[in-house]
Design a protein around this nucleic acid. Structure first.
Lengths: 253, 253
DNA sequence: TCTTGTGAAAGGCTTCACAGCT
DNA sequence: AGCTGTGAAGCCTTTCACAAGA
């Protein structure tokens, strides 16, 4: 992740921490909900609770954007919605292409959260010729042969990859060559891209594995007590540990 | 060097940093690929490249697990696969339920990456009675009424929520009450859970918004130069800025 | 000679706690 | 009286650079 600074220190203050940027959408969602309920102002405490963070962090985050609050009162909901939207670049329209219209691609195409922010699904692309022309979420699927033309005609700079892992790098290369500079990758593979292209990845199986790690920890908790069990050696505790054998195949679809 | 927190100092060394845990699945994936190609050993440099991190970080990460490498040589691939699998708890079987079998839930059910690690989709659950009995990915969908029984009968401790945002908290509460202690949440909402329950969230629209932020930055880069533009005030640069108006509705499906 | 394992330094993020405004 | 905005402290993560070991 991480953009890669490299450039100039920027005029000044053009340095919103990455961790803050990652939370802005969370605040925006909470604020939008308040806005719909016509709540005029909100305190850092209340908003933080709605967004699931603590209030000091929220105030610090907002301080990077500027002084948008009123001491003794709180934040104006509408005003903040606008400021955060602008900061995130959501006041403009972002045409997006989704490549790989399998189960996941279709789910993404149908996902309402895209359209509701500045994002617009400009095209769905798949390599399967039998898919071509079929509408998914009301948008006809186009064949991968036309990828470059589609990107250029629509001025697309954000691409979503939902193909099998084996196809992801090739798709990525074509997207980048055609002018895409931000990629959201759902394929379980590491993409390599030239300098200046941002990649974010979402990996379902990684999230589950992290949960499993903590879950295992919890299970071992009850029989914790003391005892040796140094770093390396095998842990004889735990439940099953399984027959194991050897690991099964990798690449998911 | 990281003793345990809150609880006891743990026998020793039972404190793998969270950032490291989050990367272990990445290493495991790269290692599994090497294993399939029958590569016997790998250096930190090579493995790091395959996993998309730098080698110093990888070595530091592995140092928390123990000394599994050989100086001058590298790491034994099979051995490392096993050690990381065990550390992540993947040498045991984790039954998982997926709640909400819409587009996304179906995509998850079909996702090969689940089964290929220790995860097994024990049940699919949906609130729509017309779905009941229909097979998705070869597994019959069951009605939400039976959620508690399904959890208990299958000894499920990990749940995946792929429902609309409005239903997520209620589903979460029922999962937790039935004994689930780890939740992977795809609904765009903040879940509140009791102490001891882990929640990880995946939010498609948040990822896109983060990309949009950086994309906007890039667009403004060309006309950067110097000039004032202090923190708060409106930025008159940028491309379009759009007519805006007011934000549309929130909750996606 | 080559590569790991790791103290130490550097950098970034979070939390604290309170001054400053309304 | 209340709540924001923010220096300063503390904690966590990454990177450096080299001693230790095969």
């Amino acid at each position: 992740m991480a953009t890669g600074r490299t450039h100039r220190p920027a005029t000044r203050s053009r340095g919103i921490p990455e961790a803050t940027v990652a939370r802005l959408p969370l605040y925006l969602r909470a604020l939008t909900a308040l806005s719909e309920r016509s709540v005029p102002t909100v305190s850092s405490e209340e908003l933080a609770a709605a967004a699931g963070v603590n209030s000091a962090k929220l105030r610090k985050d907002f301080s990077y954007l500027g002084s948008y609050g009123t001491r003794g009162v709180g934040y104006d909901v509408e005003y903040l919605v606008y400021q955060i939207s602008r900061e995130l670049g959501l006041t403009q329209d972002w045409p997006v292409v989704i490549v790989g219209i399998g189960n996941l691609g279709a789910a993404l195409a149908n996902y309402g959260g895209f359209a509701s922010r500045g994002f617009r699904v400009a095209a769905l692309i798949d390599a399967d010729p039998t898919m071509a022309g079929k509408p998914v979420a009301g948008i006809p699927v186009q064949h991968a042969d036309d990828l470059e033309k589609i990107i250029q005609d629509n001025g697309v700079s954000i691409g979503v990859i939902a193909t099998p892992a084996g196809a992801a790098q090739a798709v990525c290369d074509r997207l980048v060559a055609a002018g895409v500079t931000s990629i959201l990758n759902f394929a379980p593979t590491v993409l390599s891209v030239p300098e200046g292209v941002d990649v974010r990845k979402v990996d379902l199986s990684i999230e589950l594995q992290i949960l499993a790690f903590h879950e295992q920890r919890k299970a071992g908790e009850e029989a914790a007590s003391d005892g040796g069990v140094p770093t390396a050696a095998a842990r004889s505790d735990s439940t099953d540990q399984g027959p194991d054998g050897d690991m099964p195949a990798v690449m998911p679809a």
